[in-house]
Structure formats: C-alpha cells, structure tokens
Write a protein that binds this DNA or RNA. Sequence first.
DNA 1: ATTTACATACGTTCAGGTATGTATATAATC
DNA 2: GATTATATACATACCTGAACGTATGTAAAT
Lengths: 209, 209
Amino acid sequence: MPRRTKEEAEQTRLALIKSALQLFSEKGVAHTTLMDISKAAGVTKGAFYWHFKNKLEVLEAITQEYALPLDEAAQQKLETMTPSTANLIEAITFYFETLEQSEALIAFQEVILFKCEYTDEFSALLKRDKDDLEKAREIFSAFITDMDESQWQGPRPDAAHIEALSQTLLNALVGGLFQWLTTRQGILSQTVTQAVRIILRGGGLKVDG
Amino acid sequence: MPRRTKEEAEQTRLALIKSALQLFSEKGVAHTTLMDISKAAGVTKGAFYWHFKNKLEVLEAITQEYALPLDEAAQQKLETMTPSTANLIEAITFYFETLEQSEALIAFQEVILFKCEYTDEFSALLKRDKDDLEKAREIFSAFITDMDESQWQGPRPDAAHIEALSQTLLNALVGGLFQWLTTRQGILSQTVTQAVRIILRGGGLKVDG
DNA sequence: ATTTACATACGTTCAGGTATGTATATAATC
DNA sequence: GATTATATACATACCTGAACGTATGTAAAT
C-alpha cells in the first residue's frame, strides 16, 4: 500500500526503530539483516531504505529515540541541583533507576556493550560514546568542584584529585552497568549507589550512612 | 605444499591464531572472513578448516594462547601473597602493567570489549567472561577477608561489605580498562592503581599515600 | 601404505543494494 | 471546488558479490 499520510509514515519509522533495537539485542547488529528489521516492523525493505540509509543510521536513530532523553534529563538534573554528595548520589540513582525500569533502555545498553562491533563506520559510534563519557566526567568534576567546604572530610583537595575521583566514579558506573547486564543479579541502582558511596568516601567526601 | 612436519603444522596454527587476533581487532570478528585470516597467515582456507572448526574455535584458541597465562599468573600471585592492601594493589598493578606492555593482550581486550557480538554461539564466550569476573571477585573477597586487623581503619566490617567493596573494585577495573582502551590517554596501570587506592580507602582499609 | 597437512575448486546461500512500479496524499492551478 | 500534477511512502523484483562450507586432490611425513 503506497503513500501513507505523514503520521502513518512516522509510525512505520518508529516501528522500524523499535524492531531494530529488539533484533539487535537478540541477534546482534552484524547478524541482523535489513529484511529481518523490515519484516518485524510489518513492512518491506523498500520501507527501510526509504527511512534509513543503512544500519548505522538506524542505530543513530535508536540512540536519539531512546538513550538521549535520559542522558539529557540526568545532565539537566545535575546542572540545576545544588552541589552536594547527597545530590550527586541522587542524580546517579535516578539515572540507573530509570534505566533498569525500561526494557528498551536495557536493550539499548546491551546492544552498545555486547551486540555491536565498533569497526569501520561504527567506530564513529564508539567515538561519540567516548565523548559522552568524557562529558559526563567533566560534569561530575564540575559538580564536585562546586561543592561546599562542608562536604569534605578534610581540606579541599586539588583539581587533579577531583579529576581522578570523578574518573574513578565514572569507571565504576560503566563497570557496574557492564556487570549487571551480564549477570542481572541484584538491583542495578542499589549496587551502583553502594559503589558510589564507597568511592566518594574514599575520595575524601562526607557520605552519610 | 602438503604434509608439513608436526612442528611446522603448529607454526601455521599459531600463525592463524596470531593473524586472527590482528584482523579481529582491526575489522571486528563478524566482518573478518576465514579467508582473510588464512591469507594473512600465508595459507589457504583448507589449512584453517584443518586446524579449527569455525571462528569461535579460533577465538577460544586466542584466549588460551594470549589471555589465560596472565590471568593465571595474577591469580597465583594473589594466592601466594600475604593478604594486605599493599599486596593487593601490587597484584593489580602487575596485571595492568603486563597488559599495557603487550600489543597482543591489548588487541585481545579490544576484541573482547569492542569487536565482538555476543550472540548465538558467542554468547557462551560472554558467559565464560562473566564466570571469570565472578571468580576474580571471589579471589578479591577472600584476599581482603584474610587481611590482618591492622589493615583496617576501624573495626573489621562484615562479609556483605567486603563483597560490595570487591565488586566495586572489580567494576572500576573493568570500567578503567574500558576507558583506557577507548581513549588511550594516560598510563593504564597508574590510573587504575589510583582508582584502587580511592576505593580501598573508601571501603575502610588503610592505604598509604 | 596410510595418514597428515594442507591446496584448490565449487556449490549454495544470503545479505546489501538498486531499479522500478504504484497508489495515494498533497500541492498547484484554474 | 474540481482537476491536474507531482512528490511521497512504500512494495516488488532483481542483481551482485561474497562468505561459508564441503568435496576432492595431493605430496610428503610416518
């Protein structure tokens, strides 16, 4: 059936994105064919090639549709909060609570970490992921730097220490997500929060509990 | 040229493994063809199929050849050391120093983390990786548990806390490796060691420096 | 003599891409 | 407001290369 209305076209676009994410997480990006995606979305390859140029474009669309909103929400949360350890922990907890409650977000992270080969054109995707992490680290650093003197156990440390601290924090988050996605044991937001407490305390900040 | 001697056959086997690792890290596992590997090793597909059943078997051979020795060395190091924070840090530093000095080990980790889709038969590989990490965590836990009272800042914590601590430690290591492999910035063993210090201190252990 | 350690050749499947068909929504024109 | 024109949103069919696997050949080691 040719020539749907604009809204119907957007529907099929979203259906393609959704099916792609589902199939990517099941079969991997490289082993998912464009016809697999099209079929699962109830259309043909013609529809796919109308909306997207290739697999990479779908993955980018998936990112825009599913991952970006949470990233931006968490970022804005941190930017509006008053800098404190409690608020830092809360923002991180918010991120992982939202993540673990969304099948789509879980599937997305699975694809990014386990079902995608970062080579050729896809290496750009890894680079962007790298930039995102670097940005997150900078936000952590700024947030910690802006904290009041009262948040620290001892005297305020230098910038290098805060950078090392925020980097360690970020690495533990990535590693924690990695570990949870493979084992699915425990509650992601809780284990991560626990790790954050340990690290912030080890970095010289006051942490209650 | 048919029918080489046993040693020559082992040579081509190792050449295939080496070429496979190289190509996997460049082009990704899925996008590397068996003829690519064979050609790079200076043989034909016939030689490949004589030594291996499929791609998965090569990857397993690569693991045996390159990754296992370091894992076992680090593990044995921990088992023979007297439990202390300094020795824990030293064992971890040893692991990552060895890693960052070997192109092959770096390539292997790159393949495992970024150039491999864990689906179908390859999901078994991810499961084994999971088991390895779980084993590492247990070793960390045991090592920390066996530590002398003098190693702690305060009273000795309960088992649950030590488990959370070792898990956080492991997650930070994985995340740190992840981060270093993407950015290649700084010296892996140093940044990781720094992270370990922060975490152990946050976990309640005495850390010098 | 037989097995080994490959080389060569082939068949089959299958994925990506393209070219083209087509019915309808939408815009343009009168 | 009716007609026409055009762009849209796909469906269908085909073409191409290529990768996997397999079957078979073969010369030397054992």
